[in-house]
Design a protein around this nucleic acid. Structure first.
Length: 645
RNA sequence: GCUGACGUAGCUCAAUUGGCAGAGCACCUGAUUUGUAAUCAGGCGGUUGCGAGUUCGAUUCUCGCCGUCAGCUCCA
């Protein structure tokens, strides 16, 4: 007998192998209708999978977030059912639920077209309407092999079960059978609100050496408004796309002759420099800024370990002297900082020493991986390497963490922390890794902040804390990082002189805040949808004279603003005021300052804040306005006075 | 890199089965002198990404190259 504990504390004794369906039905027939699946001690299983253990028994209905994964996983099967009906030659791969939806991989002779997707979507609606029950069967290896005799990918998966005592199960809906662990919704009619999103190639088991399958991405929800909201969110993300907004606001370009390397326009350069200035200002006291060469011989990369582990991603340069590609553009700043540190004797009193550099880095990303500013081949980091004593790790991690979180705060971004441990491909002994992971984890724990684990996701030289930032429409981006490195000091033979007058090995921490400026700016563009706060705006005020004869005053006013440190322009073109306002709005200029005859005589401005259409005019003196804007810039206010939210 | 889609004026997009490459915006000129999101008129603007091929004829069909986009961890 198994003991089930219901949420209200009541217990049920049921025989081993009882179906959850029976238990739920006995609690209430209406609950059975609403049930999607159940969870036993937190483990989700469907209503037709026999109970094999007792524990806390929770009925999962639509309201439970875990129900969505079940629905989506079933959606994947329904997709495969539809595809098989229309393309019987399709071999099935995997079809899991993923964050935001689900996909299914197929091996087909001819890739899918958008027309195919439309047909599949219609067929899925039919399958759903047929209300086919999902039938679970637990089968032997031999029976399973029989069942998937025409599906080589499934047979390959079955081989993994050889010699294990795992239960092999299949799920059938109508004509379609899939090797599947479950859980599933009771029948296909549960899938009501779904949409096929895209099709693209995907390697079998993510391995580029294996054949390429065709993956169809889709999403599904229980309620129509949730699906609509999801699709709307995708539209919103598209509207904010930094590649589109960057063009509208004239911030950067790409040219085919420099794939993956941005050309920054005057406006984009202003934005870029403003952000870099901000970092530099924040780092003025506790950091040491240096500039280092871009090009190095391979000797340095051999010493750092990059030549062995990272060569594929480096741009190698032909050395005329040796006639070999034995030089490389730097993909990272760390080795040059190590050279700096090693160039002098250091006392323990000097530590921690924090070197920072904003140099350009080059990484040879796969051509297919390039994407706008978020994945580029040339970029700059706000890169810092800290040299410190082992006993300083906890304090330093806290210091860096506060620095990083404070920085994001200035942009209205919030971060969550991820702790990443040793990856399979790595340098350094296990003893060093043990020490590094223990030290970093202890420092992280000491800050008292919550964090998530990312096992095996560390850098090749050490464990790290990643900062994942959430933007204004809820998307997550990995930005900052704190990486602990015991290997580099060994490789570069770094030393400091301790209190005992003996040489000691320092520890290195790699730290980035923005990740790369390129990607950070892309994120800011999308975060603010191009409507930057005043301090970041490439153009902060646009002065608009109402008629030609007021142009000299407008120019004079713009000059006064510039003298006060405001990025001000004036637009005296022979166009209507409406036209010029529209253009300033389109360019997301935070303030428009209109000068008419009344204002010119009184020394005032009629100020219109961006996005404040229909609001009553704000008549202020020029001096008061300058004071207000300079104050907003100084404090780096996130919302302008009187502007949209 | 691989799979697929796409590439037409500075930008956003048209161009029936292969048959004279177009529009709006931007830009220039002129008129208008403008009070809070597009004044009117005229004009300039193209090796249809690059290179081959098929054809009487290619933006359109075929091949190669370049670039852009989606995807290539999310495990039956």
């Amino acid at each position: 007998m198994l003991t089930l504990v219901l949420p209200d504390g009541a217990t049920r004794e049921v025989p081993y192998g009882t179906l959850p369906r029976e238990v739920v039905g006995s609690i209430g027939p209406r609950l059975l209708l609403a049930a999607i699946a159940v969870a036993v001690d937190g483990e989700v299983q469907d209503l037709q999978t026999p109970l094999r253990k007792g524990g806390k028994f929770v009925v999962i209905t639509e309201k439970d977030p875990r129900a969505l994964d079940v629905l989506r996983h079933s959606g994947a099967h329904i997709l495969a059912t539809a595809v098989r009906r229309l393309r019987p030659d399709a071999k099935i791969g995997f079809g899991p639920a993923i964050e935001g939806g689900f996909y299914y991989d197929f091996e087909v002779a001819k890739p899918f077209t958008p027309d195919d997707l439309e047909a599949f979507e219609k067929e899925m609606a039919k399958v759903a309407a047929e209300k086919l029950p999902f039938v679970r069967e637990e089968v032997s290896q031999a029976v399973a092999k029989q069942r998937f005799v025409d599906d080589p990918l499934k047979l390959e998966r079955l081989e993994d079960f050889e010699g294990t005592d795992e239960i092999i199960s299949t799920y059938t809906d109508g004509p379609f059978v899939d090797l599947c662990r479950g859980p599933h919704v009771p029948d296909t009619s549960y899938l009501k609100h779904f949409k096929l999103l895209s099709a693209a190639g995907a390697y079998w088991r993510g391995d580029e050496k294996r054949q390429m399958l065709q993956r169809i991405y889709a999403t599904a929800f229980f309620k129509k408004d949730e699906l609509d909201a999801h699709l709307h969110q995708m539209e919103e993300a598209k509207r904010r796309d930094h590649r589109v907004v960057g063009k509208q606001l004239d911030l950067f370009h790409f040219f085919p002759v420099a794939p993956g390397a941005a050309f920054w326009t005057p406006r984009g350069t202003t934005l870029y420099n403003t952000i870099q200035d901000f970092v530099q200002e924040r780092q003025r006291d506790a950091f040491i800024e240096v500039k280092t060469p871009l090009l190095y011989t391979k000797k340095l990369w051999e010493q750092s370990g990059h030549w062995g582990k990272y060569k594929e991603n480096m741009f190698l340069v032909l050395n005329n002297e040796t006639d070999e590609h034995d030089m490389s553009l730097k993909p990272m700043n760390c080795p040059s900082h190590h050279l700096f540190f090693a160039s002098h004797k250091h006392s323990y009193r000097e530590l921690p020493m924090r070197y920072v550099t904003f140099d350009v880095l080059h990484r040879n990303e796969l051509s297919g991986a390039l994407s706008g500013l978020t994945r580029v081949r040339q970029f700059a980091q706000d890169d810092c390497h800290v040299y410190l004593r082992e006993d300083q790790i906890a304090d330093e991690v806290k210091f860096l963490m506060d620095f990083i979180l404070g920085y994001y705060d200035a942009f209205g971004l919030t971060a969550t922390l991820k702790f990443a441990t040793r990856p399979p491909e790595r340098i350094g002994s296990d003893e060093l890794w043990d020490r590094a992971e223990a030290a970093l984890r202890a420092a992280l724990e000491a800050t008292g902040r919550p964090y998530e684990m990312k096992e095996g996701d560390g850098a090749f030289y050490g464990p790290k804390i990643d900062f994942d930032v959430t933007d204004s429409i809820g998307r997550q981006w990995q930005l900052g990082t704190i990486q602990l490195d015991y290997n580099a000091p060994e490789r570069f033979d770094l030393e400091y002189v301790g209190e005992d007058n003996a040489a000691h090995r320092p520890v290195v921490i790699h730290r980035a805040v923005s990740g790369s400026f390129e990607r950070f700016i892309a994120i800011l563009i999308e975060h603010f949808a191009g409507a930057f706060p005043v301090w970041l705006s490439p153009e902060q005020v646009r002065v608009l004279p109402i008629a030609d004869d007021l142009a000299p005053q407008a120019e004079e006013i713009a000059k006064r603003m510039r003298a006060a440190g405001i990025r001000a322009t004036y637009d005296q073109r022979n166009e209507t005021l409406n036209y010029r306002i529209r253009e300033a709005e389109t360019m997301k200029v935070p303030y428009m300052a209109v000068v008419g005859r009344r204002e010119a005589e009184a020394g005032t401005l009629a100020v219109r804040a961006r996005g404040a259409a229909g609001k009553k005019q704000d008549i202020v003196s020029i001096d008061a306005f300058i004071a207000r804007v300079t104050e907003e810039i100084r404090t780096r206010a996130l919302t302008a006075t009187g502007a949209e939210g």
